[in-house]
Design a protein around this nucleic acid. Sequence first.
DNA 1: AATCGTGCCAACCGCGGAAAC
DNA 2: GGTTTCCGCGGTTGGCACGAT
Length: 262
Amino acid sequence: MVRTTGIDKSGLKKGAWSEEEDNKLRAYVLRYGHWNWQQLPKFAGLSRCGKSCRLRWMNYLRPGVKRGSFSEEEEELILKLHKELGNRWSAITARLPGRTDNEVKNYWHTHLRKRTKQDSKPKDKIEQTSERSQPMESDADQNKESSAISIFHSTTDQNRSGLETEIAAVPAADTNCELSPLSCGSKHFDGGDWFGEDSNSSVESLPESFESFWSEPFALDTSYSNLKVINYDWLPPVEEEFTYPFSSFLDEDMDWFHELIQ
DNA sequence: AATCGTGCCAACCGCGGAAAC
DNA sequence: GGTTTCCGCGGTTGGCACGAT
């Protein structure tokens, strides 16, 4: 089920994600958002390509992702929408709060496609096979349900419950914003004010200045307010190799700019 | 107990579109 | 207006789990 981890030509890891990597990515995106998926892994201390990080976040780590088996209502909706929209999984997923396109796509191919074929069979044949088409009641599925529910398995129960409460407040239709603090309205932000801040800020020094960190450059992003913002107490300890995106940016690539503002 | 076949799903890959330059 | 960069989408694959033989 899980691909074995390997290293590609460019030295980037491939395959299954470890819990440590999950924690790093989750903590990073919850703190800084995904301002640039290509660059993000570098700043988050991950040896992954941006695409892989994005996929992992979208399909697994993103707050509000619903895991576990599909309800009958969801199944019916998928069938109905697939009839209307075809293989436009993202469009279908937009109508299924908490589900990911990958999950819906997989579910279609493994469960529902058979059903559509059965539906096109003569009625007596459908009845003959209908007993087997109630997969969700099996022990295996019930186990999956219970084991897969926890998307924050690495957190403490106390903190997890706090975050889950917050997640419950997320509007279901808010799929475009990907529930990330910085994703909406931040894509083309003007980072000007950022450079006025302490350009050598490290993550370790963030908590004190965190309020202004959020409120200034991304003030336009109101879409996230419904989440009551993240409970930062919950966040895993910040890894040392985390870097503050734009301070590192300044340090490594913007020497000229550094000189300019001094 | 060993082997084989199938189901399932996380992750990868390639492409197209949008935005930035 | 052309080129580059980035993102998102949909198709496909890899490999584990599990049942059948």
